[in-house]
């Protein structure tokens, strides 16, 4: 099928052969579409809107326009950006799901490592929490309970192969108390919100999820945070120990994140523009505070750092999925 966009562009180019002035205009010369591959209101949507707000003064008339294109676990919006014209006017709010967990467990219509990575934006550390009415006061008690009554302890997730599921399985596996997929029962829900709610109601015994998705319940005391996955404690829940402190290494890849990416082969001018603009956003106090208020960690990293983190996380996740036989 001939690409009508291209056809139109060629025509336009022919028409304007005599006027080369248009080519010299600096990027961006029109508004930029930032595709969020999930529905409004979620962590990715919030990250996108925070970025749009933080860059609005600098971009002037050529604002970021946030467009929610959800579906298929983020694959619809992501594949659309992957195939978009790499002129820098279509960007993706990439998520852990679109670039790590989903590609680890199933075929995706793009290469998760072949993107114009502009940088990490924020990370969402995963915490495991239990209802205030459950008897487990610490992570050790929870693990002991799982060991004592196999298959009886349940945990919720946003579906098989999501970060909620994989994080819990990894944690149990690394605790070495038995077959990580059998000893505790996995109960999938339709999305992260219902999964957290199930833990609040006590319908399941625990949930491992990005802190920002549960901050309301943890702050109100309905949920008790038992452990923070990774190497650093969270300012909001200073009493919850990290997995590293508890002697469980390698959990730092089980983290939610939002990054900014463009289609492969994106215009180098535009890439340069964004890398330097993200450098400015990094020190924007209002942006930092906004991100923190939503329970996330401001984490603007360079493209190189982001790529090496993604690569490591994707490889490890793939390996874990393979070892555990999780394949969708």
């Amino acid at each position: 099928m001939p690409n009508p966009h291209k056809l139109a562009c060629v025509t336009l180019a022919v028409l304007s052969l005599g006027m080369a002035t248009a080519a010299s205009a600096a990027y961006p010369e029109k508004p930029i579409t930032l595709i969020v591959p999930f529905s409004p209101g979620g962590a990715s949507d919030q990250a996108a809107r925070a970025l749009a707000a933080a860059t609005s003064a600098r971009l002037g008339a050529n604002q970021i326009i946030v467009v929610n294109k959800d579906g298929a676990g983020g694959l619809i919006g992501s594949s659309e950006v992957y195939k978009a014209k790499p002129d820098g006017y279509t960007l993706l709010l990439a998520r852990v799901a679109t670039h790590t967990t989903v590609p680890a467990v199933r075929e995706v219509p793009y290469d998760p490592m072949n993107w114009a990575v502009l940088g990490m934006l924020e990370t969402n550390p995963v915490t495991c929490a239990t209802s205030k009415d459950k008897p487990y006061k610490t992570f050790k008690e929870l693990i002991a309970a799982i060991k004592a009554s196999p298959e009886k302890i349940t945990y919720s997730s946003a579906g098989p192969g999501t970060i909620l599921h994989l994080a819990a399985v990894m944690l149990i596996e690394k605790s070495k108390i038995g077959d990580p997929q059998k000893i505790a029962t996995h109960i999938p829900y339709k999305g992260g919100g219902p999964a957290a709610l199930a833990a609040v109601k006590g319908e399941v015994d625990f949930v491992c999820q990005s802190y920002n998705e549960m901050s309301a319940h943890i702050k109100s005391g309905a949920l008790r945070a038992l452990i923070v996955l990774g190497n650093e404690r969270l300012a909001d829940v200073p009493d919850a120990p990290t997995s590293k402190e508890l002697g469980i290494d390698g959990m730092e890849i089980a983290v939610g994140w939002s990054g900014l990416m463009g289609p492969p082969g994106m215009d180098p001018e535009a890439v340069k523009f964004w890398v330097s603009l993200l450098g400015e956003v990094k020190n924007n106090k209002a942006w930092q505070d906004g991100v923190k208020r939503l329970g996330s960690v401001p984490s603007i990293w360079s493209p190189a750092e982001t790529v090496s983190f993604m690569k490591n996380a994707l490889e490890k996740m793939k390996q874990i999925a393979k070892e555990l036989g999780i394949k969708l």
Binding site: Q46, A216, L294
Partner: peptide, 11 residues
Amino acid sequence: GAMLIQGIQPG
């Protein structure tokens, strides 16, 4: 989401 952006923790 709107409340959180405004710095209010629903609950």
